[in-house]
Amino acid sequence: MENIYKRKVNKSLIPTCNIMGVNIAAINMEWLVSYLNENLEDIKGDYICVSNVHTTVTSYEDAFYCAIQNGGLMAIPDGGPLSTVGQKRGHKNMERTTGPSLMGEIFKISAEKGYRHYFYGSKEETLEILKQKLEEKYQGIQIAGMYSPPFRPLTEDEDKEVVERINETKPDFVWIGLGAPKQEKWMAAHQGKIDGLMLGVGAGFDYYAENIKRAPIWMQKSNLEWLYRLMQDPKRLFKRYLNTNTKFIWNAMIRGK
């Protein structure tokens, strides 16, 4: 991936902390928003992974997916445990930078900056509500386009049409809401083909469409958002959390991987 896509910025200037093989950006939200504002024109076509315990453990066990996590512009610490490990390893300014929070920070300045947004993923109904909610909350926001892809894989011709459709709208930010690991694989496959900066934000669409609620601020700050999500969707998340959290604690926190 790295030898095919010609990056215009020096990726080595982004501080990182290697956690279980993934180079997690050792940054905070202020640094990230400033970086995106200053370098946007030069990082279009690239992608950002929003990484957490689940994606990091998956990367540790899957070399291909790990290469995707490391092959983009950066992998930001969405999960609180990642920033906690980073701080313990000497990256004192490393803080949790969640996908939904980043979306909000960018949306707030979009009218002033003239940023154009494209949303790829989720259901048609969710996208319609999302558009309405964003235009109500962020006056002057430019939503360049939205697309809900079918659940089946796209044919080569269909994929070319999607790329053309996105690029015709001249987006600055292309938000991908397919869920991990699908969204990261999609971004990597389209690196250098999409004219905007791609960011895989998982459930971010549902948060801003208000289909699901985010944890209270105190839980977010205490790294307990995972618990709030578990209470919202215990059947789906309990087994995953039990499996990945245990592996993360053993490998990252105890073994120092």
Rank of each mutant, 00 (worst) to 15 (best):
E2K: 08
N3T: 11
N3F: 02
Y5L: 07
R7L: 15
V9W: 03
V9G: 01
N10W: 00
N10C: 04
S12G: 01
L13Q: 09
L13F: 03
C17I: 09
N18V: 14
N18D: 07
I19W: 04
M20S: 06
G21H: 05
G21R: 00
N28H: 03
M29H: 14
M29W: 00
E41T: 10
D42L: 08
I43L: 15
I43R: 12
K44T: 14
G45W: 08
G45N: 14
Y47R: 03
I48Q: 04
V53S: 12
V53H: 05
T56E: 13
T56P: 01
V57D: 09
T58Q: 08
S59T: 06
S59C: 14
A63I: 10
F64H: 14
Y65S: 09
C66A: 11
A67F: 01
Q69N: 09
G71Q: 04
G72C: 07
L73T: 13
L73K: 01
M74G: 10
A75M: 07
P77C: 09
D78M: 06
G79Q: 09
P81Q: 07
S83A: 08
Q87A: 12
Q87W: 03
M94F: 07
M94T: 00
G99H: 07
M103S: 06
I106C: 10
F107N: 05
F107C: 06
K108A: 12
I109Q: 15
S110C: 13
E112L: 04
R116L: 01
Y118E: 08
F119W: 12
F119Y: 11
Y120G: 01
S122R: 09
S122G: 02
K123L: 15
T126E: 06
L127E: 01
E128Y: 15
K131I: 11
K133S: 14
E135A: 01
Y138T: 15
Q139M: 09
I143E: 04
I143W: 02
A144Y: 13
M146S: 03
S148D: 14
E156K: 13
E156W: 00
D157H: 06
K160S: 05
V163Y: 07
E164K: 14
I166W: 10
E168D: 08
T169H: 04
K170V: 12
F173P: 07
V174S: 04
G179C: 02
W186H: 05
Q191D: 11
K193V: 00
D195S: 11
A203Q: 03
G204R: 02
F205C: 09
Y208L: 05
E210S: 10
N211T: 12
R214F: 00
A215C: 02
M219R: 02
Q220F: 00
S222E: 01
N223S: 14
N223D: 10
L224T: 14
E225A: 01
L227Q: 02
L230D: 15
M231R: 03
Q232N: 03
Q232R: 01
P234C: 06
R236P: 03
F238Y: 14
F238G: 02
K239D: 03
I249G: 03
A252G: 15
G256K: 11
